[in-house]
Nucleic acid binder design. Sequence first.
DNA 1: AAATAATGATTGAAAATGATTGCTTTTCTA
DNA 2: TAGAAAAGCAATCATTTTCAATCATTATTT
Lengths: 253, 253
Amino acid sequence: MQPVLTEERHFTILNFLKEKEIVKIQKLTDATGASESTIRRDLTDLEDAGLLRRVHGGAAKVSRKRIEPTMNEKSSRFSEEKRAAGRLAASLIENDDCIFIDAGTTTLALIPYIQAKNIIAVTNGFDHLRLLVEKGIQAYGTGGMLKQSTQAFTGTGAVHGLQQYWFDKAFLGVNGIHLKAGYTTPDPEEAAVKREALKRAQQPYVLADASKFQESTFTHIADLKEAVIITGKIPEKTRKIFEQATDIKEALS
Amino acid sequence: MQPVLTEERHFTILNFLKEKEIVKIQKLTDATGASESTIRRDLTDLEDAGLLRRVHGGAAKVSRKRIEPTMNEKSSRFSEEKRAAGRLAASLIENDDCIFIDAGTTTLALIPYIQAKNIIAVTNGFDHLRLLVEKGIQAYGTGGMLKQSTQAFTGTGAVHGLQQYWFDKAFLGVNGIHLKAGYTTPDPEEAAVKREALKRAQQPYVLADASKFQESTFTHIADLKEAVIITGKIPEKTRKIFEQATDIKEALS
DNA sequence: AAATAATGATTGAAAATGATTGCTTTTCTA
DNA sequence: TAGAAAAGCAATCATTTTCAATCATTATTT
């Protein structure tokens, strides 16, 4: 069989993954004529390059949810709920404030609505930095390791960077809001960053949509009472439960 | 006669790549009647000109979406020089290295050529971060204020961020290389970052094109001997003058 | 004719490959 | 549900392919 170049195989493999969610190694050895070893190596390389995800028996498509740089406030990526929460959060920012903005799409939605003048913003979100600078807001990055999956700076580097600052307000995103577990997130590294930011803010806010309530996800960040929750709209029943534990600001009521 | 033949081969090679994603060397020797050596030289030349990408066993189409957004202003002679310098610089990076990459277009040109595996890169360049992460390289930001004009993190925040790390190699961009003034740059804030990175690297390199030699621009970074200079091509006379003060690596000679 | 540039052959080094081995994960089956 | 069988895996090794560097030769320019 005619030899097939490494790059060609890589191309073939990625093409398979455009069509299907998962492709088996067997299928790839058949399609390329290469040995199993070679295909395995290819998969390792491509995974290292972030172009696919290895699974037992083959490889899976990687969901590349890259945040578009051309985002504007009409963007359909944000639900009405997120935009409402963002608008409400932005209205809380006053002139000359120094604020922290956490990485994540919920907090990203607040940036377009910022009206206050002469503010300083610190963030661990890569896309947040770009949006802030484009808007002419003085922006600082925390530094630290840039995670591809979430486009966020994290780890000790980010915590270390935060320790230089003090905030009037901090706007955090979380994955779970739970009566007993408090605010939670799956990644301990990111939790450390959020915790540090929360500690260093005069007034911390947590932005969350309805789906986050009564959820808990592994890593504890802080107790409910340590921040004010900003949300779009939540069911009456949920509201009743949580408003005894902390303040809730509901944008659409 | 021969120069024409060279041009013809180049034309043939590029035509193959219009049809297909990848072309093997074998196919090109068959099609042109030239020896393998000659084809290899052609491929090297065409890659330097940015018209294709070499892969093991042949050459691949260069995807046109990979155009540097910040690199399209300069004359093409200059960017070729930068690419050559970038290629040379990238070849110095070894597996498992921990490197610093300074902000700026010259150092940006280095990133596409990085081959070494398992490296850690720290940078104060916003675009650099994006490129590194897209390439699957573990990337750290220094943090600090993000300057809109240069897309670089600077100030005490960036210096502070750097102080967490130690590098095998550092790749710096500078604005002036002067026998007496040493390496210089216009912005004192950026100079502080460069100085810190240089101090923290086992082996510092300075990337510069010919126009930077015998120039000096306000803020002193370090003396000439404190880094190795990587450049595309400089006049014989300039080389003679500077190679007594420090090491110079010339990419195109 | 001398200098310069292009070419092709050679060679040691580097990269890619396929087979093998011992280990881990998954699946089957009793 | 435990334990065996099967499938999948990373690591390693020998082999093959490809590569860059070098040198001698040929063609082109000065």
